[in-house]
Write a protein that binds this DNA or RNA. Structure first.
Length: 314
DNA sequence: TGCCAGGCGGGGT
DNA sequence: ACCCCGCATGGC
Protein backbone atom coordinates (compact mmCIF):
# COMPACT_ATOMS: atom_id res chain seq x y z
CA UNK A 1 0.00 0.00 0.00
CA UNK A 2 1.44 3.31 -1.08
CA UNK A 3 0.63 6.89 -0.22
CA UNK A 4 0.35 9.60 -2.82
CA UNK A 5 3.22 11.90 -2.04
CA UNK A 6 2.86 14.52 -4.71
CA UNK A 7 1.02 15.54 -7.87
CA UNK A 8 2.58 17.64 -10.56
CA UNK A 9 2.16 18.48 -14.20
CA UNK A 10 5.15 18.44 -16.51
CA UNK A 11 5.22 20.14 -19.90
CA UNK A 12 6.77 17.22 -21.75
CA UNK A 13 6.35 19.04 -25.07
CA UNK A 14 8.74 21.67 -23.82
CA UNK A 15 11.36 18.95 -23.54
CA UNK A 16 10.43 17.54 -26.95
CA UNK A 17 9.22 14.32 -25.38
CA UNK A 18 6.43 12.20 -26.83
CA UNK A 19 5.04 10.32 -23.83
CA UNK A 20 3.13 7.84 -25.94
CA UNK A 21 6.41 6.76 -27.55
CA UNK A 22 8.50 7.01 -24.40
CA UNK A 23 6.11 5.06 -22.19
CA UNK A 24 4.93 2.76 -24.96
CA UNK A 25 8.25 1.47 -26.26
CA UNK A 26 9.62 -1.72 -24.73
CA UNK A 27 6.93 -1.72 -22.07
CA UNK A 28 4.48 -4.26 -20.71
CA UNK A 29 0.71 -4.29 -20.59
CA UNK A 30 0.68 -4.08 -16.80
CA UNK A 31 2.85 -0.94 -16.71
CA UNK A 32 1.30 1.01 -19.58
CA UNK A 33 -2.18 0.91 -21.03
CA UNK A 34 -1.97 3.68 -23.64
CA UNK A 35 -3.12 6.26 -21.14
CA UNK A 36 -1.10 5.92 -17.96
CA UNK A 37 2.31 4.42 -17.25
CA UNK A 38 3.95 3.25 -14.03
CA UNK A 39 7.68 3.86 -13.63
CA UNK A 40 9.50 2.48 -10.63
CA UNK A 41 11.91 5.13 -9.33
CA UNK A 42 13.22 3.22 -6.32
CA UNK A 43 12.75 -0.24 -4.84
CA UNK A 44 13.70 0.31 -1.21
CA UNK A 45 11.95 2.46 -0.23
CA UNK A 46 9.41 1.84 -2.94
CA UNK A 47 8.64 4.89 -5.07
CA UNK A 48 6.57 4.79 -8.25
CA UNK A 49 5.75 7.56 -10.70
CA UNK A 50 2.29 7.35 -12.23
CA UNK A 51 2.64 9.20 -15.52
CA UNK A 52 -0.37 10.13 -17.66
CA UNK A 53 0.14 10.81 -21.36
CA UNK A 54 -1.24 14.34 -20.85
CA UNK A 55 1.74 15.13 -18.63
CA UNK A 56 0.18 14.86 -15.19
CA UNK A 57 2.26 12.86 -12.75
CA UNK A 58 1.53 11.37 -9.33
CA UNK A 59 4.33 10.19 -7.10
CA UNK A 60 3.47 7.23 -4.89
CA UNK A 61 5.75 6.03 -2.10
CA UNK A 62 6.06 4.05 1.10
CA UNK A 63 7.45 7.14 2.71
CA UNK A 64 7.35 10.58 1.16
CA UNK A 65 10.93 11.74 0.98
CA UNK A 66 11.53 14.73 -1.24
CA UNK A 67 14.25 13.12 -3.32
CA UNK A 68 12.07 11.74 -6.10
CA UNK A 69 12.54 14.53 -8.67
CA UNK A 70 16.08 13.65 -9.83
CA UNK A 71 15.17 9.96 -10.28
CA UNK A 72 12.06 10.98 -12.23
CA UNK A 73 14.10 13.23 -14.52
CA UNK A 74 16.60 10.43 -14.98
CA UNK A 75 14.07 7.67 -15.61
CA UNK A 76 12.32 9.54 -18.42
CA UNK A 77 15.34 11.33 -19.86
CA UNK A 78 13.70 14.69 -19.26
CA UNK A 79 16.93 16.64 -19.56
CA UNK A 80 18.51 14.53 -22.24
CA UNK A 81 19.16 16.58 -25.38
CA UNK A 82 19.13 14.19 -28.31
CA UNK A 83 19.55 16.89 -30.95
CA UNK A 84 22.95 15.65 -32.02
CA UNK A 85 21.81 12.03 -32.02
CA UNK A 86 18.87 12.76 -34.30
CA UNK A 87 21.04 14.93 -36.57
CA UNK A 88 23.30 11.96 -37.20
CA UNK A 89 20.31 9.64 -37.46
CA UNK A 90 18.63 11.83 -40.10
CA UNK A 91 21.49 11.06 -42.51
CA UNK A 92 21.85 7.43 -41.59
CA UNK A 93 20.81 4.47 -43.74
CA UNK A 94 19.57 2.56 -40.68
CA UNK A 95 17.99 5.32 -38.61
CA UNK A 96 16.82 7.92 -41.13
CA UNK A 97 13.27 6.67 -40.80
CA UNK A 98 13.56 6.53 -37.03
CA UNK A 99 14.65 10.18 -36.92
CA UNK A 100 11.42 11.10 -38.72
CA UNK A 101 8.95 8.99 -36.76
CA UNK A 102 10.45 9.00 -33.33
CA UNK A 103 12.10 12.28 -32.33
CA UNK A 104 10.05 12.38 -29.18
CA UNK A 105 11.30 9.02 -27.98
CA UNK A 106 13.46 8.83 -24.87
CA UNK A 107 14.91 5.70 -23.36
CA UNK A 108 13.31 4.85 -20.03
CA UNK A 109 16.21 4.00 -17.79
CA UNK A 110 16.06 1.33 -15.11
CA UNK A 111 18.19 0.15 -12.25
CA UNK A 112 21.50 -1.59 -12.94
CA UNK A 113 20.09 -4.78 -11.45
CA UNK A 114 17.06 -4.88 -13.71
CA UNK A 115 19.04 -3.73 -16.75
CA UNK A 116 21.30 -6.74 -16.30
CA UNK A 117 18.34 -9.09 -16.08
CA UNK A 118 16.96 -7.57 -19.29
CA UNK A 119 20.30 -8.05 -21.03
CA UNK A 120 20.67 -11.64 -19.87
CA UNK A 121 17.22 -12.52 -21.20
CA UNK A 122 18.22 -11.26 -24.66
CA UNK A 123 21.16 -13.67 -24.85
CA UNK A 124 20.93 -16.17 -27.68
CA UNK A 125 17.19 -15.69 -27.98
CA UNK A 126 14.81 -13.85 -30.26
CA UNK A 127 13.36 -10.57 -29.12
CA UNK A 128 10.04 -12.30 -28.66
CA UNK A 129 11.50 -15.02 -26.49
CA UNK A 130 13.58 -12.61 -24.41
CA UNK A 131 10.68 -10.32 -23.59
CA UNK A 132 8.47 -13.32 -23.01
CA UNK A 133 10.93 -14.44 -20.32
CA UNK A 134 10.84 -11.07 -18.59
CA UNK A 135 7.07 -10.95 -18.75
CA UNK A 136 6.74 -14.38 -17.16
CA UNK A 137 9.46 -13.64 -14.64
CA UNK A 138 7.67 -10.57 -13.33
CA UNK A 139 4.35 -12.38 -13.16
CA UNK A 140 5.79 -15.50 -11.53
CA UNK A 141 7.28 -13.57 -8.64
CA UNK A 142 3.86 -12.16 -7.84
CA UNK A 143 5.02 -9.01 -6.14
CA UNK A 144 2.31 -6.39 -6.42
CA UNK A 145 1.56 -2.99 -5.04
CA UNK A 146 -1.84 -1.35 -5.01
CA UNK A 147 -2.13 2.09 -6.59
CA UNK A 148 -5.66 3.44 -6.60
CA UNK A 149 -7.69 0.43 -7.68
CA UNK A 150 -4.91 -1.16 -9.75
CA UNK A 151 -2.47 -3.88 -8.81
CA UNK A 152 0.91 -2.98 -10.27
CA UNK A 153 3.51 -5.78 -10.54
CA UNK A 154 6.90 -4.96 -9.04
CA UNK A 155 10.30 -6.14 -10.17
CA UNK A 156 11.82 -9.02 -8.24
CA UNK A 157 14.94 -8.00 -6.32
CA UNK A 158 18.24 -9.89 -6.00
CA UNK A 159 17.16 -11.36 -2.66
CA UNK A 160 13.90 -12.55 -4.24
CA UNK A 161 15.52 -14.47 -7.07
CA UNK A 162 18.00 -16.09 -4.69
CA UNK A 163 15.21 -17.12 -2.34
CA UNK A 164 12.97 -18.48 -5.09
CA UNK A 165 15.51 -19.67 -7.61
CA UNK A 166 13.05 -22.18 -9.08
CA UNK A 167 10.88 -19.33 -10.34
CA UNK A 168 13.63 -18.35 -12.78
CA UNK A 169 13.58 -21.75 -14.42
CA UNK A 170 9.82 -21.81 -14.57
CA UNK A 171 9.95 -18.43 -16.30
CA UNK A 172 11.71 -20.07 -19.22
CA UNK A 173 15.18 -18.57 -18.71
CA UNK A 174 16.94 -21.91 -19.19
CA UNK A 175 20.67 -21.71 -18.58
CA UNK A 176 20.37 -17.92 -18.25
CA UNK A 177 18.97 -18.54 -14.75
CA UNK A 178 22.48 -19.28 -13.54
CA UNK A 179 23.72 -15.91 -14.77
CA UNK A 180 20.85 -14.06 -13.10
CA UNK A 181 21.74 -15.84 -9.85
CA UNK A 182 25.39 -14.85 -10.26
CA UNK A 183 24.37 -11.23 -10.74
CA UNK A 184 21.98 -11.33 -7.77
CA UNK A 185 24.75 -12.72 -5.56
CA UNK A 186 27.08 -9.94 -6.70
CA UNK A 187 24.48 -7.40 -5.52
CA UNK A 188 24.04 -9.20 -2.18
CA UNK A 189 27.83 -9.35 -1.68
CA UNK A 190 28.08 -5.66 -2.52
CA UNK A 191 30.30 -6.14 -5.56
CA UNK A 192 27.51 -4.49 -7.52
CA UNK A 193 25.14 -1.74 -6.48
CA UNK A 194 22.64 0.42 -8.26
CA UNK A 195 24.71 3.56 -7.75
CA UNK A 196 27.71 2.06 -9.54
CA UNK A 197 26.77 3.54 -12.94
CA UNK A 198 27.13 7.03 -11.47
CA UNK A 199 30.41 6.35 -9.70
CA UNK A 200 32.50 4.51 -12.27
CA UNK A 201 33.72 5.30 -15.74
CA UNK A 202 32.03 3.24 -18.41
CA UNK A 203 35.13 1.15 -19.05
CA UNK A 204 35.50 0.42 -15.34
CA UNK A 205 31.83 -0.48 -15.14
CA UNK A 206 32.09 -2.76 -18.14
CA UNK A 207 35.08 -4.49 -16.56
CA UNK A 208 33.27 -5.03 -13.26
CA UNK A 209 30.17 -6.42 -14.97
CA UNK A 210 32.17 -8.75 -17.20
CA UNK A 211 33.73 -10.32 -14.12
CA UNK A 212 30.38 -12.01 -13.53
CA UNK A 213 30.14 -15.39 -15.16
CA UNK A 214 27.60 -15.25 -17.94
CA UNK A 215 27.91 -11.51 -18.52
CA UNK A 216 29.90 -10.66 -21.64
CA UNK A 217 30.40 -7.54 -23.73
CA UNK A 218 26.88 -7.45 -25.06
CA UNK A 219 25.07 -7.84 -21.76
CA UNK A 220 27.41 -5.50 -19.90
CA UNK A 221 27.07 -2.75 -22.47
CA UNK A 222 23.32 -3.07 -22.85
CA UNK A 223 22.94 -2.91 -19.07
CA UNK A 224 25.18 0.16 -18.92
CA UNK A 225 23.13 1.94 -21.57
CA UNK A 226 19.82 1.06 -19.92
CA UNK A 227 20.93 2.16 -16.47
CA UNK A 228 23.29 5.11 -16.86
CA UNK A 229 22.11 7.29 -19.77
CA UNK A 230 25.67 7.09 -21.09
CA UNK A 231 25.95 5.52 -24.49
CA UNK A 232 29.57 5.43 -25.62
CA UNK A 233 29.86 1.64 -25.57
CA UNK A 234 27.61 -0.04 -28.13
CA UNK A 235 26.17 -3.49 -27.42
CA UNK A 236 26.89 -5.12 -30.75
CA UNK A 237 25.52 -8.58 -31.27
CA UNK A 238 25.24 -10.89 -34.27
CA UNK A 239 22.03 -9.18 -35.28
CA UNK A 240 23.31 -5.60 -35.33
CA UNK A 241 26.66 -6.68 -36.76
CA UNK A 242 24.99 -8.22 -39.79
CA UNK A 243 22.58 -5.32 -40.28
CA UNK A 244 25.27 -2.65 -40.00
CA UNK A 245 27.51 -4.61 -42.34
CA UNK A 246 24.78 -4.55 -44.97
CA UNK A 247 23.60 -0.97 -44.40
CA UNK A 248 27.08 0.56 -44.39
CA UNK A 249 28.65 -1.75 -46.93
CA UNK A 250 31.49 -2.84 -44.66
CA UNK A 251 32.73 -6.19 -43.40
CA UNK A 252 31.37 -7.55 -40.14
CA UNK A 253 34.73 -7.17 -38.43
CA UNK A 254 34.79 -3.47 -39.21
CA UNK A 255 31.35 -2.83 -37.74
CA UNK A 256 32.22 -1.94 -34.17
CA UNK A 257 34.96 0.54 -35.00
CA UNK A 258 32.88 2.16 -37.71
CA UNK A 259 29.79 2.27 -35.53
CA UNK A 260 31.63 4.14 -32.78
CA UNK A 261 33.29 6.54 -35.22
CA UNK A 262 29.88 7.32 -36.68
CA UNK A 263 27.77 7.55 -33.52
CA UNK A 264 30.32 8.62 -30.92
CA UNK A 265 28.71 9.19 -27.54
CA UNK A 266 25.37 7.97 -28.94
CA UNK A 267 26.62 4.54 -29.98
CA UNK A 268 24.51 2.45 -27.62
CA UNK A 269 21.42 4.57 -28.11
CA UNK A 270 21.73 4.08 -31.86
CA UNK A 271 21.97 0.34 -31.35
CA UNK A 272 18.78 0.30 -29.28
CA UNK A 273 17.01 2.63 -31.71
CA UNK A 274 17.86 0.25 -34.56
CA UNK A 275 15.96 -2.52 -32.81
CA UNK A 276 12.93 -0.24 -32.54
CA UNK A 277 13.17 0.92 -36.16
CA UNK A 278 13.16 -2.66 -37.43
CA UNK A 279 10.60 -3.93 -34.92
CA UNK A 280 13.31 -6.23 -33.50
CA UNK A 281 12.51 -8.70 -36.25
CA UNK A 282 14.67 -11.81 -36.51
CA UNK A 283 17.80 -11.32 -38.57
CA UNK A 284 16.58 -12.73 -41.89
CA UNK A 285 13.55 -10.52 -41.94
CA UNK A 286 15.40 -7.47 -40.65
CA UNK A 287 17.97 -7.82 -43.43
CA UNK A 288 15.17 -7.98 -45.97
CA UNK A 289 13.57 -4.88 -44.47
CA UNK A 290 16.78 -2.95 -45.00
CA UNK A 291 17.05 -4.08 -48.62
CA UNK A 292 13.47 -2.97 -49.15
CA UNK A 293 13.96 0.31 -47.30
CA UNK A 294 11.34 -0.51 -44.65
CA UNK A 295 13.17 1.12 -41.77
CA UNK A 296 10.38 2.60 -39.70
CA UNK A 297 8.32 0.71 -37.11
CA UNK A 298 5.38 -1.04 -38.76
CA UNK A 299 1.83 -1.68 -37.64
CA UNK A 300 1.53 -5.42 -37.03
CA UNK A 301 -0.52 -7.84 -35.01
CA UNK A 302 2.63 -9.40 -33.58
CA UNK A 303 4.51 -8.02 -30.56
CA UNK A 304 7.15 -5.42 -31.40
CA UNK A 305 9.07 -2.91 -29.29
CA UNK A 306 6.51 -0.17 -29.93
CA UNK A 307 3.32 -2.19 -29.58
CA UNK A 308 4.13 -4.94 -27.07
CA UNK A 309 2.42 -2.96 -24.30
CA UNK A 310 -0.87 -3.83 -26.02
CA UNK A 311 -0.45 -7.57 -25.40
CA UNK A 312 -1.85 -9.26 -22.33
CA UNK A 313 0.39 -12.26 -23.01
CA UNK A 314 3.72 -12.46 -24.81
C1' DT B 1 10.42 -32.35 -35.92
C1' DG B 2 14.62 -30.38 -35.96
C1' DC B 3 16.64 -25.96 -36.22
C1' DC B 4 17.35 -21.42 -34.99
C1' DA B 5 17.66 -17.06 -31.98
C1' DG B 6 20.20 -9.41 -29.63
C1' DG B 7 25.56 -14.63 -26.16
C1' DC B 8 28.74 -16.83 -23.43
C1' DG B 9 32.67 -19.47 -21.66
C1' DG B 10 35.88 -22.97 -22.29
C1' DG B 11 38.40 -25.39 -25.30
C1' DG B 12 41.30 -25.43 -29.13
C1' DT B 13 44.82 -23.13 -32.71
C1' DA C 1 43.58 -12.78 -31.41
C1' DC C 2 41.04 -15.71 -33.44
C1' DC C 3 37.64 -20.18 -34.37
C1' DC C 4 34.35 -23.69 -32.65
C1' DC C 5 31.28 -25.97 -29.85
C1' DG C 6 27.60 -26.92 -26.43
C1' DC C 7 24.19 -24.92 -23.96
C1' DA C 8 18.10 -24.55 -21.82
C1' DT C 9 14.15 -22.88 -23.77
C1' DG C 10 10.37 -21.68 -26.93
C1' DG C 11 8.59 -20.68 -31.57
C1' DC C 12 8.00 -22.09 -36.04
Amino acid sequence: MLRRCSSLTIDFNKYGIDLMLTLGTYNFNFWFDGHVGYVQLSAEPLVIAEVYTDGSVNIWGESCDKGYIPPLINALGLKEDLGEFFDIASKDPLLKGFSECCRGWRLRSSSLWWSLVVGICQQNASFRQGWGMLFKLIKNFRKYVRIGNRLIPLLPLPKDVIRYENLLRSSGLGYRSETVINVAKAFIRGDLSDDLPMRLSLKELEYVLMNIKGVGHYTARLAIALSSRRYELPPIDRWLRALASLAYGISEREVEGYWVSRWGRWSALAAIATTIALDAEPLRRALRRIREGLITPMVTDKPSPTNMWRFKEL
